[in-house]
């Protein structure tokens, strides 16, 4: 049943947010700490476990994969509701600090990623996904 996949995703999502909130409270921060990341880890483990025990029919998988494939449209909707006016009104301080922060981070990213290249660039070739709903996005 396709709903089993979506329900699995929903349970992982809620559980992750819950743990993130608990973590935030324990640390004395007013926000959720990594709830979405925890939910992702839960889903990865759930998938590995269910695959090993042969409890993951294709239809259940599709219930999750549909939402994974809806990701880009959701991001487009997210872009369409950014507060662009406020961002542009921030003036030189906002613009300059954002630009400089991005530039510094970009250089560090490039530096770290270049050290990897020789070592394991071959690994990228084997990378694949098995979500049939994604074939047209490539």
């Amino acid at each position: 049943m396709i709903i089993f996949g979506t329900a699995l995703l929903a349970v992982c999502h809620l559980l992750g947010i819950f743990i993130g909130d608990l973590l935030g409270q324990a640390l004395g921060v007013k926000t959720n700490v990594g709830g979405v990341g925890i939910a992702m880890l839960l889903l990865i483990f759930a998938r590995l476990y269910m695959q090993k025990n042969d409890k993951l029919p294709k239809l259940t998988e599709l219930g999750v994969e549909y939402w994974g494939a809806m990701y880009i449209p959701v991001v487009v909707a997210m872009a369409a509701q950014q507060d662009m006016v406020a961002a542009l009104r921030g003036g030189p301080v906002a613009l300059l600090s954002a630009l400089a922060a991005v530039a510094v981070c970009a250089i560090v990213i490039a530096a770290i990623n270049r050290t990897e290249r020789q070592a394991e660039s071959s690994a990228s070739e084997s990378m694949r996904h098995d979500n049939p709903l994604l074939t047209d996005t490539e």
Binding site: G35, M40, W67, M70, N131
Partner: peptide, 14 residues
């Protein structure tokens, strides 16, 4: 929905 879709992408993680 954004977080729901992000979590769903974890299904493809190796």
């Amino acid at each position: 929905l954004r977080d729901f879709a992000i979590v769903a992408t974890a299904f493809e993680v190796q």
